[in-house]
Design a protein around this nucleic acid. Structure first.
Lengths: 341, 341
DNA sequence: CTGAAAGCGCTTACAG
DNA sequence: CTGAAAGCGCTTACAG
């Protein structure tokens, strides 16, 4: 922390502390002569303003918090990259908070939100009803909040958000399978308690229904968004008496686990089982076989959501809050083929 | 941000602001009667202390910054998990700064370090000589710094650090290959400009030398720590006129790219080429074949380095600064076999 | 145990 | 353009 204060600089430059402050924050309001004097003094002392004092005085920290369920997921990594990049150009630092919002109590969420000295919050996580309440309250107290990636629940409809059309994307993935002739299509979704992949499940169900294809209840299993969870889910699927010919995984992380488990069981992909993922993380193209998946413009989502937050911080609540839908894309690689039978 | 200040609470509870402050920070110094009065007032108003004011007043933020080259690398994710966990129990928030310290100028590094309002810094990135100077300066001004994962360069020897013995681990990996009969062993290292995998290269060279095995200069190639970089490096290796029978990759991320590229070229792993990685990230066990690698106790490193930093923050410079070496382990899976010839 | 007061290091109207 | 002064919301000796 800086050990020389503005007073010392003022003393050396023989001006008031107000002038030193101006030289730093509004140099155009100061004579060139004075400015040079002060800049010399700053250089001499190695002065840099005490950020804590500045933040306190200005009532803002230039830190934003992003809340997400899993920093380890490469998809979120990519979103974070976009956020960071936008944050940097806007002069913000980013505080990352890894939390399962849906498992927290109202008090815990409240504590987290106020206890962090941030100018605004980006939510990449889905919320429990609890959380929703708290959020609305905080938001009314002018803590700017923006939601990314996840489709917002009705209660959160008045928050700005940026995401793809998850339902349409999941439908597209499922329809691709159907168009190839698959009839027994399973799905590995995220977590029961989380909204994170709920819309993808909805899209899958909608596509199946539209094609008049039945869904065996045993085909829709929870994968916990992790490799391990997906492996377990896949084992269940493989031993099902009405075994599916294709599996739609709600994210690539799970698709990687699924792929490995199917192959471990002695079946071939896509020869015996087709697999399709979601997100297009960087590992998707180097799996064996390379993974067919839905790609999201992760970095772009990150950038947009950060810019959105900045607008909210600067302009207050005057900004629009309609969701911003960004385009997704079906990326066809080699983990999907026509069904064997 | 809180909109009700300590004054309001004091007014309602009919006490001084000093007493309100005591109720929150030193409740044992206050009569039970007073305490109850104040707590009621706090509940009534929904008061929570302004963290900015607290930080400013106390001269500390309870935020630590961790600087790392790539948040996306699952290894760092695992380290971060340990850091977060320790930070939470110690009451700290974590600010993540993704930066290639070795490509920054002295001014940039200096700006980054002072401009962030943090109580201490964890470095998971290697430093340029520039950075080293700055760091020493900052450290002398009592900004606590602790180094994790990477072997520290001589100039940084007086900083506390936590890491495995990278040289020994790389030797072990290479010796394992040698013990199986491999003689033409290549290595894909990180970045020319980064120290991050330098010690692993040293270990590899030491093992080869000890076994009196020559190293063709074309066998040691840069992989940029990324999948893409490793794929390119592998293509070079595969077209080398004196093609290696085994490849040691300085991290698993690159090993994944390497594996994919070798298989794409029509060769089998480990039948034709053996591959060994480093880190044991969570994807290592689901590659095809599962990856033999060196595992680091990533989470433990994270925890220890955070606790180390806490001690430095609390105790000042009185703490020991000898490096803390944690154990690594060779994890044998299926990407390595005896050479074909 | 409690209160009055000083002060942390800045920024920003307000005069001049 | 510059300076004197107020004040942001806390914490903490210092009296009582």
């Amino acid at each position: 922390m800086p050990d020389v204060s503005i007073k010392e600089v003022a003393r050396i430059a023989n001006v008031s502390i107000a002038t030193v402050s101006r030289c730093i924050n509004n140099p155009e309001k100061v004579t060139e002569k004075t400015r040079i004097k002060v800049q010399d003094a700053i250089r001499q002392t190695g002065y840099s303003p005490n950020r804590l004092a500045q933040s306190f005085r200005r009532g803002r920290t230039n830190i934003v918090m992003v809340v997400l369920p899993s920093v380890g997921d490469p998809f979120f990594t990519a979103v974070m990259k976009g956020i960071k990049s936008a944050a940097t150009t806007k002069g913000y630092s980013v505080l990352i908070e890894e939390t399962q919002l849906n498992t927290m109590t109202a008090d815990e969420i409240g504590a987290m939100l106020v206890s962090n000295q941030t100018d605004g919050i980006i939510l990449l996580a889905s919320m429990s009803p609890f959380g929703t309440e708290i959020l609305s309250a905080k938001s009314k107290r002018r803590l700017p909040i923006v939601i990314g990636c996840e489709t917002i629940s009705p209660e959160l409809a008045d928050f700005p958000s940026v995401h793809i059309d998850n339902i349409a994307a999941a439908k597209e993935a499922t329809n691709y399978l159907i168009s190839l002739g698959h009839k027994r299509i399973a799905m590995i979704y995220g977590q029961e308690s989380s909204l994170l992949t709920k819309d993808r499940e909805l899209g899958y169900r909608a596509a199946m229904k539209q094609a008049k294809l039945p869904i065996d209840p045993g085909w829709v299993v929870e994968g916990d968004l992790t490799i391990t969870g997906a492996r377990k889910a896949t084992r269940n699927l493989m031993s099902h008496n009405n075994r599916p010919t294709a599996i739609f995984c709600a994210n690539d992380e799970m698709a990687i686990g699924c792929l490995h488990e199917v192959k471990s069981s002695g079946l071939r992909v896509p020869g015996d089982i087709s697999i399709i993922g979601f997100d297009d993380i960087r590992y998707a193209e180097v799996t064996d076989p390379p993974l067919t998946t839905i790609s999201q413009p992760a970095e772009e989502i990150g950038e947009r959501v950060m810019y959105r937050l900045c607008r909210r911080i600067d302009a207050g609540h005057g900004t629009t809050s309609s969701p911003e839908i960004v385009p997704h894309k079906l990326v066809i690689r080699q983990s999907v083929a026509k069904p064997a039978d």
